[in-house]
Structure formats: structure tokens, C-alpha cells
Design a protein around this nucleic acid. Sequence first.
DNA 1: GTCTATAGATTGATAGAC
DNA 2: GTCTATCAATCTATAGAC
Lengths: 205, 205
Amino acid sequence: MNNIKKDNTEEKILDAAQTVFIRKGMDGARMQEIANEAGINKALLHYYFRSKQKLFEAIFKQVFKQIFPDIKAFIHAEIPIEKKLGIFVEKYIDLLMKNPYLPSFILQEIHRDPEFLASVIKGQGIDLHELFTMLGKEMEAGNIRKMDPRELMINILGLSIFPFAAKPLMQLIFFDNDKKAYKEFLKQRKETVKDFILNSILLKA
Amino acid sequence: MNNIKKDNTEEKILDAAQTVFIRKGMDGARMQEIANEAGINKALLHYYFRSKQKLFEAIFKQVFKQIFPDIKAFIHAEIPIEKKLGIFVEKYIDLLMKNPYLPSFILQEIHRDPEFLASVIKGQGIDLHELFTMLGKEMEAGNIRKMDPRELMINILGLSIFPFAAKPLMQLIFFDNDKKAYKEFLKQRKETVKDFILNSILLKA
DNA sequence: GTCTATAGATTGATAGAC
DNA sequence: GTCTATCAATCTATAGAC
């Protein structure tokens, strides 16, 4: 009963709005284009969602949840730290390969309306305390190099996200605009990013 | 004679346009706002630059040059590779600290109009061949771990750029929205990013 | 609930005086 | 070169019929 794709109007609008907003951003998106994408009329958008702003906020919240993968599940898993980090990187890059336009959309909107971003984050109750203490323990135990855990997290995110956020530019200057080659490169990064990080932080016995 | 700030109208327009376009992007920027910022009238914008599009293109080209620092100067310098990479990272992060909104602006626009991006890059004649062969030689000589030089470059760029591109989000979730603390964090990254990279790629003798 | 038609507001661009 | 006034196009939002 769960996998049956709803094809009621509200669902169609949400799907269409997500597509258009991610591609064009809040400023660039047009209600007409969203209506076309949904195969309905412009007025219906305002019937279901009061305004462009409200529709956008619904989409942003929905999309934003996706960039916080389910990390709690494996923070306390009984596996070595290098496995944990490896799984995180793989899951994250997998997510980005399925939604390659997500990073640039988020990066754009967090600058456009930081106050709204703050309200969304508050509403999500994101808690990174557990993550940091877990990393701290691994450093104390001498398993990984001692460093600011926030630095480590931002490095992991940067290495994973940047090639997607900057795709058109990187593809152009480093891969001669060869789409296939760049896609292959991104796929391989599930391994190379993992190696790059572990080579840097793992303390060789 | 060189440091005298031109205060003719064209210069004022270019300065104002850069400020507004970087803050709002092409779609979000308004000609009225640029005119206000420049302290002149809207009609004058169209007198100097024919259209919003032409004005934007002038700004983009101008801004884009800044993200390609003068690397040729030190590619062939007679210093060890770890020094070279260190200098590159430091220079790049310095540049970003002076222009913190540059990354998000570029990332936004390369997605919005990739064809224009391609024309700009062609016009700049960017050549990375020398850089790659230099890195290749260092790998052959056993000074750094063997890897795809494009991968190494993208990792360096990602580690340097991402914390600026994602500033509002990172500052919020990792630093409790403490502006000062995040700025200090970014400053320290001139060292920590360098360490993170060298720890990963340097082959210990 | 869904549509057509249109109002109301914003904005890029131009005309014309000085 | 610079300004005021205004046009023309675009876009969000609403009114009203079905």
C-alpha cells in the first residue's frame, strides 16, 4: 500500500515544484512552469498552496531532509571507525548521484534566505552531539589523528559534495565536457574519497 | 597613478553591479537595486550597458578571473611539492576570505547558464596541461602517492571552497551561528587543509 | 476541484527633456 | 551624460463560471 504512487493533484504539484525549484531556484522558478510540469493550471497551484513562497517552503523542507542521511543508525554500530566513515561517504555519494542537482539548490537557497534556513533546522532538531563524542572517543583511543571533529566533518562533506555542486565547471575544465567520463569519475569517488580521507586521518600502527 | 580609485560613472556601475549580482545572482538581482547601490539612475545603466544580460556578462567575466589565481607563476618553481601545494591552498583561502560570496555566486551561475560559462572559459584560454604534468612527475619520482591528478585538484578545491560556499549552513549546524568562531575556523583552515592533504598524499620515507 | 480570464504589481527597457 | 516619466512585458495572485 505504501509504494503505490499517488497521482492526486497535490502529489503532482509537489513533484513538479521540486523539479522546477531545484533546477531554477526560488528566484528563477516560474509558477507557470511548475503548472506545466504538473500538467495542470496555474490557478490550482494557488488553490493548494496559498502562494509561491508557501509552495517553495514546503519543497525546501522536503528536500532539506534528504541531505541529512540517516546517520544515527550507524553512529553506535560495533564496527571500526574506518568502516563507519567509509559507509558514510558511500551513502552520501550514492544519494548525490541520484540527486545531482540537490547541492547547488541547497547552497543557493541557504544564502538567499538564511533566516528561513535557521527555522527549518530548528524544526528538524538536528543533534550532532553523539556524532562528535563518538569521533572524540576514536581520537582518544588513538585510532585516528586528533583534530577538531567539525573540521573532519566539513572535510568529508566538502570532498563528497563539491564535485556535484561544481559539476558543470569541473566537467568542463578537467574532463573536456565529457559527460560520461565525469559521471564515471563521480562514481569512482565512492572509493577515492574514502581512501583520501583514511590516508589522512588513520594512524598507522 | 594606478591606485587612484576611478569615480567615473562606468566604474561606479561596475562596482555596484558586482556587489548586487554576487549577493542576489542574475535572477534575484534588480536593475533598480544596482542603480541605488551606484547612486545613479536606472536609465543610466542601460546607457552604459545595453541590457541587464550584457551588464551581468561583464561582471561574470570580471569575477570569474579571480577564481583562477596566478598558478603559472609557481608551477615550475624550484621548491618541493609540499611547499607548492601549501602555497596554493594558502593563496586560495586568502582569496576566499577576501571574497567570501564568490563561491556561491559562481556555483549558482555555472548551473544557470552553462553555455555562457563555456564561452567564458574558452575566451580565457585556461591550460592545465603544465599543472598535470608537474603533478605526474612528482608521482613518478615517488614524492606523492599515485593518483589521478584531476582527483587531487578537485579534492584541494573542494576542501578549500566548500566551507565558504556552504557558510550559512555550516556556521549554523557546527558553530551555533557564532560568526566570529566560524571566521576564525576559516582562517585556521589555511593550515589544517594543508595538513589534511599532505597527510593523505605524502609518501613517508 | 478545476478551469478561463484578468487584475495588480513588478521590472527591464526606452523616449525625450535638459 | 544624466535625469524623469512611461511603456511593454512578465509574473503572482484572485475572481468567478462550471
